Simulated assay, not measured.
Amino acid sequence: MRPLIERLARGRAWWGFLLLLGIALEAVALYYQYRLDYGPCVLCIHVRLWIAAWMLLAVLGLLLDDRPHVRRLLHGLNTLVMAILVERSWRLLGVERGFIEGSCEMDAGLPDWLALDRWWPQVFEPWEPCGYTPELAFGITMAEALLVMSLLLGLVSALLAWASLRARAG
């Protein structure tokens, strides 16, 4: 019997989990934005974009997981996305807590060829300056939860990428 990490690296369960988690996270963000009136800042929009990127990779993983070379590429790209998500989450927490100096502009900084803030402003347009995130539960802020979640997902993604590279083709 193969170790769990190898089975996860070769199967569709991971991709399905990432897709469902991404949908849930985007839904929570939109709930906080539209029902609780916590507008997103530029860093929050960046986090949403990277979650959307992992969701796209998850869809591709579900559709193309039977091709070993594509699987390896997707696991590698997913690890890169998770690493960038860790960086964005760290920056968001740092600005919130004050250990990273800086402020955000109201421009998402997206190129014209990917102007999601103009094409889909309901989801990707910044409303607020950076500096705080709402409390989720038990005194844990959204920035803290995002950092812990992205670190865990990044670690699992890196392990799966390593396992997919180690695995024999097939």
Rank of each mutant, 00 (worst) to 15 (best):
R97S: 03
V70C: 05
A52L: 15
V70L: 13
E87G: 09
H46F: 15
S103G: 11
G94Y: 09
F99S: 06
E105W: 10
G102K: 03
Q122P: 00
P68Q: 12
D112V: 02
V81H: 04
L60Y: 14
M82E: 02
P121S: 02
G76E: 07
D66N: 15
G131V: 08
T79N: 05
W54A: 12
I84H: 05
L64W: 15
W113F: 15
C130D: 00
L92R: 04
L92N: 01
P111Y: 10
L62F: 10
E101Y: 10
L63S: 09
L116T: 06
A83C: 07
W120S: 02
L93H: 02
L60K: 09
T133I: 03
L73S: 06
R72Q: 09
W127T: 03
V47A: 15
C104S: 04
I51A: 05
P111W: 09
G109Q: 02
I51D: 07
E101P: 00
W113Y: 11
N78W: 13
V81K: 07
W90C: 00
R88V: 11
H69W: 15
V81E: 01
A52S: 14
V123E: 00
V42G: 01
L56D: 07
D117F: 11
E128C: 09
T133K: 01
V86C: 11
A83Q: 00
M55C: 15
S103D: 09
W120F: 12
V123T: 03
L64D: 10
E96A: 00
W113H: 08
P129I: 01
V95G: 00
E87A: 14
P129H: 06
P126K: 03
T133Y: 04
C130I: 05
A83K: 00
L60T: 04
L57G: 08
R88P: 00
L60R: 08
I51P: 04
E105Y: 05
E105K: 09
I51N: 15
L49S: 04
D112N: 03
D117P: 04
C44S: 09
V86A: 06
L56A: 15
N78S: 12
R88L: 12
G76R: 13
R97A: 07
L110I: 04
I100L: 08
R88E: 06
V86S: 01
C130K: 02
E101V: 05
E128K: 12
G61D: 08
I84V: 10
L110H: 03
A108E: 04
D66Q: 15
E96W: 07
V42F: 11
